[in-house]
Design a protein around this nucleic acid. Structure first.
Length: 109
DNA sequence: ACACTGACCACTG
DNA sequence: CCAGTGGCCAGTG
């Protein structure tokens, strides 16, 4: 497929440092527009067929694990995050603000 | 080719 | 503060 968006999304997601998280919207914003956030979600949906895509580090804007339902197991995402030292309480990332990794700031176009 | 859906976000009332 | 609506892109029936 010639979806540059997907490709870019994967690139950014793969660049997320261990122990950090980001949001669909931020990735979308980094790629040009916040309104394409839905496509980022789509990319994640397809990411499960690929490897090296830490989709568990990508959550929605408030740090809610909205996509955990799409993992192998609903608690897999939480476990992976815990494995990286990220605390998750009630499907929400604790200290999200601090762990937040914004591509625009970190990669700085 | 058309319509609907989806792991979202921001704006408006 | 909560609810509703629009916008974007790709995939599926």
């Amino acid at each position: 497929m010639k979806s540059q968006f997907f490709k870019d999304v994967y690139e950014v997601v793969k660049l997320i440092p261990k122990g950090r998280v980001t949001s669909y919207g931020s990735i979308a914003k980094y790629l040009g527009t916040t309104k394409s956030a839905r496509v980022v979600g789509w990319a994640m949906n397809n990411s499960h067929v690929l490897k090296g895509i830490p989709a568990h580090r990508v959550v929605n804007r408030i740090g809610l694990l909205t996509g955990k339902n799409h993992f192998s197991s609903p608690n897999k995402m939480e476990e992976l995050l815990n494995n990286e030292g990220i605390k998750v309480k009630d499907d929400r990332i604790k200290n999200f603000k601090k762990l937040f990794w914004e591509p625009i700031n970190e990669l700085d176009l």
